[in-house]
């Protein structure tokens, strides 16, 4: 899906540092993908608040989000992200969805919800990929 290579994605970046200036992670003392874009080696592609401010302010319209996603597929995930992934792959939801959710909903006067059937999670997320695409 991300057909462009890292070099192509980075081609327009001038290392102006504006992305890093608006990054909340950097302001809190962490080092995000915006450090990488500023030429630093000490950063984690996983340290991100997903606020998209960096991409919005980039004067060169660099696709920072895609760069970060590609980098993430090379760097081991923190436990929180991995737990969400495992849940989605297994259940189709980022969090455990048990039937007691419908009890809670009833208590709040909300209709019961129908969950995605397990075999559809299989088809969507674990079945053969069309066009024999490999997961990156």
């Amino acid at each position: 899906m991300n057909e462009r290579t890292m070099d192509e994605l980075l081609a327009d970046c001038t290392r102006c540092g504006l992305c890093r200036e608006v990054c909340i992670v950097e302001r809190l003392g962490g080092h995000s993908i915006t450090s990488f874009l500023s030429g630093e080696k000490d950063y984690s592609s996983w340290l991100c608040s997903s606020c998209w401010r960096c991409q919005e302010v980039c004067p060169q319209a660099v696709d920072i989000h895609t760069i970060m996603m590609l980098k993430r597929r090379e760097q081991a995930p923190p436990a929180g992200h991995e737990a969400n992934l495992v849940n989605v792959m297994r259940l189709g939801y980022a969090l455990q969805m048990e039937d007691d959710i419908n009890e809670l909903r009833r208590f709040h006067g909300l209709d019961a919800v129908q969950f995605i059937p397990a075999e559809w999670v299989e088809t969507l997320l674990r079945g053969d990929m069309t066009r024999n695409q490999e997961d990156r």
């Binding site: 991300n2 996603m69 995930p77 992200h81 919800v113 997320l125 997961d135």
Partner: peptide, 17 residues
């Protein structure tokens, strides 16, 4: 939406699916 699942966001860091 009956049978709606996760939006897909947590997967994007791992797979195009």
């Amino acid at each position: 939406i009956p049978r709606a699942a996760c939006c897909g966001a947590p997967l994007e860091s791992f797979t195009d699916r």
